[in-house]
């Protein structure tokens, strides 16, 4: 299955927003250059986001032992999923 990259972006963003709301975290305005660790989401929130994205998109780019660096910004996080979905 090939996942449309536009839908990957919107799926990632909507999960970030949804988990922030569930975990009662104040989410900073999501811009591509926002550092993920400064987004208001802590490790537990990100863990839940990654689990949900695995359910929805069927991919977990974090567990793939590739040479790519871990994503630092929101933009890199989205690209991480877009690249894995290709």
């Amino acid at each position: 299955m090939r996942v449309n990259t536009m839908s990957v972006r919107s799926t990632v963003i909507s999960q970030l927003e949804q988990v922030a709301e569930e975990q009662k975290k104040r989410l900073a305005p999501l811009a591509d250059d926002l550092v993920l660790l400064n987004s208001g989401l802590d490790s537990l929130c990100l863990a839940i986001v990654v689990a949900r994205l695995e359910d929805v998109l069927g991919i977990d780019p974090f567990s793939a032992a590739e040479d790519a660096d871990f994503p630092v910004t929101v933009g890199e996080f989205i690209r991480f999923y877009e690249d894995a979905a290709k």
Partner: peptide, 13 residues
């Protein structure tokens, strides 16, 4: 490993 995953996601890594 969780500390390190978090560290590697920091711009200060």
């Amino acid at each position: 490993p969780s500390h390190w995953r978090r560290a590697l996601m920091s711009p200060s890594a």
